[in-house]
Nucleic acid binder design. Structure first.
Length: 596
RNA sequence: GGUCUCAUAGCUCAGCUGGAUAGAGCAACUGCCUUCUAAGCAGUAGGUCUUUGGUUCGAAUCCAAAUGGGAUCACCA
């Protein structure tokens, strides 16, 4: 940030004139001063004791003295055990604050001219979305917003896994046990209906295995020989051959599932610019395999299968094409990478996919590099950790998954209950109340899933995640609602933010200065979040900002202030906090209410 | 077994490129609503940063090893 750089420059100057030591300002590291000491920024003098030949305290004292006398920004200083703490002039803080007030795009980076594709969600069409998908969806959406704020041109893509043996399983079960059930007829959401038959398949399949095992068959063999499995495989074959009956069933069931997904996506507030379907991409990539053979970077084994040797890259040999010429998972991903690049020439292509696929993406990138593809370098696996439950890992087959739709509904119910208990719905129409519950529910859920570093595995505790106090989404939302009340009151009094001046105000309270410090650090935070692909950085910022404001709110009165300038400043400060709370939360895909 | 990854308060998590006495929230305990929304604020208590070595003025942070979780090593996706 500018202020820090300005201070660094002054220090650089001080080092040069006091000690005749040349250090570039960019090499000087400042850190925020710890709460227990006076000051905003701290300069550590230890690294310079050798080259200067004096003790750390002596250096700090001399630098502090120089800065106080020569810099218009530095108000005062103190030296504690070699740490030079610098206090910044209130006028400087206010200057920065005015600057931010006037810049409607503060924190929004200039257009980079870069294209960034973000693939996320990518569901299977045989079952509804669960908690793990929610982390994926929220991450993907938020990272997209963060990339936009960093000036990039973003395309959100969803690669739907709409084919394969698992899809055939639910189709087959439906064919056998469905009795023509439809979402309309039974009132079951389409994706849940498909999921129901996927579970039914698994149940019936297991029974068949047990029977075969009871008849003396080996369990592994029974898994392969169970009639249902054979039928499913047969169905997949028919699908690939374009069998009319199978394809028509596939189309019908998928259309139900899409209607269900669409509803969920709208409900959780995520969207996509482009959809890819594996049924349309699964044959891609064979051309690239051929290309690799031509170039001699792939090789054929005697049985005719095609491989790539990645041992030099620290990986293994990897199959790229089966002996019968059919493709494997990696084959189509190679093809899809190229297809995506042709559709949208990207500088970066992010894949929001769980960390269990780390190896796969290493291979993908390495293979494309071997092929000399220009876009290989831009591929980035945004790998996130699994969501665990207190009971352990989620397993779809064992029914320990937390269903996304159900979870959202539970959150909404909790929001309603909490709001009613607190008696906060006075003056709300039923529609507005409903809207508020939804805003709070999703705020709580998204914040909970996004505040943790994406790379880390996390625990979802139903009890804690529905907490609306402390470091939570609703806490930040509450801060916004509070400020909204203040701004409404200001408007009633005829005070307009921007027009009501505070030119002569310069007695900054500590709590006010802390809020400004938070506000002006926003651009850096957006940059950092973009660099790390980490919404958690934004979430932490929103929390710190809200916390700083709430302290100010508690300690300092706005409307009882007799000094008009001070009052105007505080209203403006509140308005800016509301603005950056709203903006940072929107980078997380979270809305903020006017009242709650 | 090979490779990758994680380990911070009772619980869930922060801790930026090494910097001061390691921070939040929840849970526990104390205060604060005749004043702008108490979904808030202030405070108390709670830690051998898994262990052991190393690098250095200085290590939760960097390096190595050990221990314990997790992922992956499919002609599944």
């Amino acid at each position: 940030m500018q202020l820090q750089y300005a201070i660094s420059q002054s220090i650089s100057q001080a080092l040069s004139s006091v000690f005749d030591l040349t250090v570039d300002a960019t090499q000087l590291a400042l850190q925020p001063t710890r709460k227990e000491f006076a000051g905003s920024y701290t300069f550590v003098t230890f690294p310079y004791t050798k080259s200067i030949g004096k003790g750390p305290d002596q250096i700090g004292e001399a630098l502090g003295q120089y800065l106080k006398e020569n810099s218009s920004i530095i108000k005062d200083y103190n030296v504690v055990k070699g740490f030079l703490n610098l206090e910044v002039e209130a006028t400087e803080w206010l200057r920065l604050f005015r600057e931010l007030m006037q810049d409607g795009n503060y924190g929004q980076a200039k257009t980079s001219g870069k294209n960034v594709m973000v693939e996320y969600s990518s569901p299977n069409t045989n079952k509804p979305l669960h908690l793990g998908h929610l982390r994926n969806n929220f991450l993907g959406y938020s990272v997209s917003e963060i990339m936009k704020a960093n000036g990039h041109n973003v395309l959100k893509a969803n690669l739907v896994n709409d084919r394969g043996i698992h899809i055939c399983k639910s189709m087959l079960a439906y064919q056998k046990f469905g009795n023509g059930e439809t979402p309309e007829g039974s009132g079951i959401k389409g994706d849940h209906l498909a999921g129901k038959y996927y579970v039914l398949f698994d149940k019936a399949y297991k029974e068949q295995i047990d029977e075969l095992v009871a008849g003396g068959m080996d369990k592994e063999e029974a898994k392969k020989k169970a009639p249902l499995m054979l039928e499913a495989q047969d169905m997949l074959l028919k699908w690939e051959q374009g069998d009319e009956e199978v394809v028509s069933l596939w189309k019908q069931m998928n259309s139900w599932v899409y209607a269900g997904f669409d509803q969920t996506y709208r409900n959780i507030g995520v969207d996509f610019d482009k959809f890819y379907y594996e049924s349309g991409t699964y044959t891609l990539g064979k051309g690239l395999v051929e290309e690799g053979l031509q170039k001699g970077v792939f090789f054929k084994k005697p049985d005719g299968s095609v491989w790539v040797d990645l041992t030099a890259e620290g990986l293994d040999e990897k199959l790229l094409l089966r002996a019968d010429g059919t493709s494997v998972y990696i084959t189509q991903d190679l093809g899809t990478a190229e297809l995506k690049y042709n559709d949208f020439p990207y500088d970066q292509s992010l894949y929001v996919v769980a960390d269990e696929q780390n190896y796969h993406f290493q291979v993908l990138k390495a293979v494309l590099k071997k092929l000399g593809k220009p876009y290989a370098e831009g591929i980035y696996h945004l790998s996130y950790g699994m969501v665990d439950l207190p009971s352990g890992k989620m397993k779809s087959r064992e029914g320990t998954v937390v269903d996304a739709d159900e979870l959202v509904q539970e959150m909404i119910d909790t929001a309603r209950q909490q709001t009613e208990e607190l008696g906060k719905i006075e003056g709300f129409t039923p529609d507005e109340a409903q809207q508020l519950y939804h805003t709070l529910a999703l705020g709580a859920l998204k914040y909970f899933l996004l505040k943790v570093d994406p790379k880390k595995r996390m625990l979802f505790n139903p009890q804690e995640s529905i907490d609306f106090r402390g470091n939570t989404g609703p806490f930040v939302q509450y801060t916004h609602a509070r400020i909204s009340a203040i701004l409404r009151k200001a408007a009633e009094m005829g005070i307009t933010v921007g027009a009501a001046t505070f030119d002569n105000f310069e007695k900054l309270h500590e709590a006010e200065q802390d809020v400004i410090t938070q506000l002006v650090s926003y651009p850096e935070v957006v940059k950092e979040a973009g660099k790390l692909y980490a919404p958690s950085v934004i979430a932490n910022y929103a929390y710190e900002l809200a916390k700083a404001y709430n302290r100010f709110y508690q300690e300092i009165s706005i409307f009882n202030e007799t000094d008009e300038q001070a009052r105007n400043f505080r209203i403006a400060l509140s308005a800016m906090v509301a603005r950056f709370v709203r903006e940072s939360m929107s980078l997380l895909g979270i809305e903020v209410p006017e009242r709650m």
